[in-house]
Design a protein around this nucleic acid. Structure first.
Lengths: 245, 245
DNA sequence: ACGGTTTTGTGTGTTACCGCACATATAAAT
DNA sequence: ATTTATATGTGCGGTAACACACAAAACCGT
């Protein structure tokens, strides 16, 4: 019986890994591993949520879809968080779509189980609330960034947030997909990526973007990235950022 | 001893008014009435929060202030909500400034008392969580709106959100202040307000904006307003919108 | 009634991004 | 190897919002 596989998997999620051993042991049996492909939809706007997902290697993007089909990203969630938090907040659905931005694994938990555990009020509850607070900061900063910054700056922020939640330096992602996330034209991303390429910060080749100069990317980004990263560190108690020195 | 004054005051906040009588009675003594002038700052970005505020007639705007001084609004909170929710979420501060957008009253509660009551896990907790979820929708929609919609549409959304939280049809607010909220130029607001004026939706005269045709304003707005309003109704169980049949 | 302040109105030139059209390059399919 | 699909590059006209500079009101205190 491969219990340890399940366990190790779940522990790749920082939120779960930070739980006291006893508490983790209690809820461990509620987890079920799941695997996702790029572009897969976890749930649509308005869907009743049956599960919450704790990503271990996958990255999920929360997208709002307008009536005319235009999209804009609200937030990015990786192995530092949980998708479907509105469940314990009392809503059973959200107004956004959750889509896999980077293929990988997660563990999921039944909505009912989550609500039970949350109601117990221990470290698990504290952690979920703190993460929600961090997510709110990310969403807020997305709003600000959308208002005040250039596409190039926003691309930097987006790449950094994604890079933080990824093992590799290479993102499997087309300009077109990124343009959906940032809510701009595909050509705008191509242009911005070219500029960043000329500055030797990234390398963009057909369907992949590789981060070359992480430090330089941070400097090219607006303050929004640093604010979000700072709050994640403050609230969740450790850096998932790869910032050096 | 004017206990009833205090009581009635607090009950003008829908969140508190919706509490079961017993629960309200228990926490009633923790409330302290406060009065605010336009432009007053409840707290700055990074400040440690000593109180949470339940507006009764005041309206509060959550503003993000950039390093260069530019500002953008994240959300609007009136008598349908609570300011300082990050307290029970586990952060003791936020990255935004809370500023009085419309003068009026509120009741406040000590941070410590709030945390205690929240931990009890009753209707009060449920309500705080549900409101937080509604607020997240508002913030998300602000992000989307900032990305995809014109200043005129955004002005409509903003006016509607403010109007919903106000007794009067007249907002005491200069174009300059609104421009700070929406993160655009003052001239942009003047132009947009003129257009809405020509359509007979509002009347804008030196420091005040009066809503003339509420229904028309809703039609001129992007879908963002309706989405936010819908979620508030769904999650908080009653409409604060003034939408007619 | 007066001068000072605040608020709003208007014009000019600039810029970032959009929408569209299409050329080119890279990968996958047969 | 050739076709087909997908991804990226590039150019051009259009537009919404910008920055800056003032003019014209509306209100305020004395």
């Amino acid at each position: 019986m491969p219990v340890s596989a399940n366990t190790n998997n779940a522990l790749r999620n920082y939120l779960l890994a930070a739980l006291p051993a006893g508490e983790f042991a209690r809820i461990e049996s509620k987890f079920e591993p799941v695997s996702f492909k790029l572009g897969e939809v976890l749930y649509e706007s308005g869907d009743k949520l049956d599960y919450v997902y704790f990503p271990t290697t996958a990255i999920i993007s929360m997208l709002y879809v307008m009536e005319n089909g235009a999209t804009a990203e609200i937030g990015i969630i990786g192995n530092d968080g949980v998708v479907g938090g509105s469940l314990f907040m009392g809503g059973d659905s959200t107004t956004s779509r959750a889509i896999i931005q980077s293929a990988g694994e997660a563990v999921r938990m039944k909505a009912k189980d989550l609500k039970c555990e949350f109601a117990l009020g221990g470290a698990f509850q504290t952690m979920l609330l703190r993460f929600t607070q961090a997510l709110m900061t990310q969403i807020s900063q997305t709003a600000v960034c959308n208002r005040l910054h250039t596409v190039e700056q926003q691309l930097c922020r987006w790449l950094l947030l994604s890079h933080d939640r990824l093992d590799s330096d290479t993102l499997v992602m087309t300009h077109d997909l990124i343009s959906n996330m940032l809510g701009v034209r595909r050509e705008g991303i191509t242009l911005a990526a070219q500029k960043l390429g000329k500055k030797k910060l990234i390398k963009s080749v057909r369907g992949t973007i590789t981060v070359i100069d992480r430090r330089g990317l941070e400097e090219a980004a607006c303050e929004c990235y640093a604010v979000v990263n700072g709050e994640y560190n403050r609230l969740l108690g450790r850096g998932i950022s790869r910032t050096f020195g």
